Amino acid sequence: MRAVIQDRYGSSEVLRLARVARPVIADHEVLVRVRAAGLDRGTEHLMTGKPYVMRLGFGLRRPKNPVSGRDVAGTVARVGSQVTRFAVGDEVYGIAPGSFAEYAVAREDKLARKPVNLSFAQAAVVPVSAGTALQALLDVGRVQAGQSVLILGASGGVGTYAVQLARAFGAEVTGVCSTSKLDLVTSLGADRVIDYTRENFADGSRRYDLILDIGGSPSVRRLRRALEPRGTAVFVGGENGGSLTGMGRQLRGALASPFLRQRLALFMAKERATDLERLTELIEAGKVIPSMDRSYPLDEAPNAMRLLERGQVRGKVAITV
């Protein structure tokens, strides 16, 4: 089968199209015929091997799984002997390591029925980013109706879902992004949008009950200035958290949190079918719509990754197979 692979860590230049053997499934796994795959920051981290601590689980010198991608949408081609939730031909979406390929393997507990009102490309850009946003808001942020929520990085993959989900849960949402993406965040339903090149969200004029810090650049002190006295800040991702752990700033915040009235929460997303099922309900109800910038065929996956590296993606990008 065709797949996008890498035999070393590095930038998008390490990605190439090749032919590899079709994967074999275990008892609790599903073989998915890939119709589309999503591109996200996690896939970029797996490509570069940074932060370095992640190599302990994914390969010290080179990736254990040479096939790129994690988000997937497609049809079930085969099921393991212990699989009970899916049958051959079902349309599904979820997490399948190595999804930049014609076929990929997913655990049964990391797949859900594809929303009927989404194309495969739209569905493929949901699982990782929307699941992260959902958990950050509910499980960690404990968002409640009527609260004020600030989302830093509102135009990115996780941010575009966080804006919509926070609104769906009844919060008042302020999104922070660059000038060129103000229209996108406004279209997602944000009550207020801040251009970080012109305004300072932490100038003291307004405080928030909950802040989702997606991307990781403001100092902990600056975040606290924008928080209510008993507000919560959730660190989502760590693009500027250092090459070793990627979480230097987040760890400092989490260590300080027990001594503060404000809550600074470290967050690591989980991959769960239950979250996908909840997202399916919200999507089919029209409360959440994937913000897909564009799609690329499988052989152009390196070009799509290059745009992500440069910060030139609005929302999400899909790879179609």
Rank of each mutant, 00 (worst) to 15 (best):
A130W: 06
R225Y: 06
R107W: 00
E309K: 05
V83Q: 01
T320R: 08
R62C: 04
V193E: 04
D299N: 08
G189T: 10
R2D: 10
P115E: 09
L165Y: 14
G57T: 09
E102P: 00
M47P: 00
G141V: 00
V288M: 09
I151L: 08
G74A: 08
A171G: 12
L15S: 10
A285W: 13
L260V: 04
S12N: 13
L244Y: 09
S291P: 00
L56C: 02
L266G: 14
L111I: 05
F100D: 06
G74Q: 04
G141I: 01
P218S: 13
A136Y: 02
G131I: 02
A154Y: 02
R198T: 15
A37L: 08
P258W: 12
G311I: 03
G170I: 14
L251T: 10
T132A: 05
R225Q: 12
L17K: 13
R85S: 11
E300L: 13
H45E: 12
L188T: 00
T174P: 00
R55W: 04
A168H: 09
G69C: 10
P66F: 05
V140I: 11
L188R: 02
G141M: 04
V92R: 07
A112P: 07
P290D: 07
L223Y: 10
L31Y: 01
G238Y: 00
R310V: 08
R198K: 15
G49I: 01
G246L: 06
L255W: 13
R278D: 14
A318C: 08
V53R: 10
T197K: 15
T174K: 04
R113S: 06
R2Y: 09
K181E: 10
A37G: 07
F267N: 06
K114T: 03
T75A: 05
L264P: 03
A269Y: 10
R70Y: 15
Y103K: 02
V143L: 14
L182G: 05
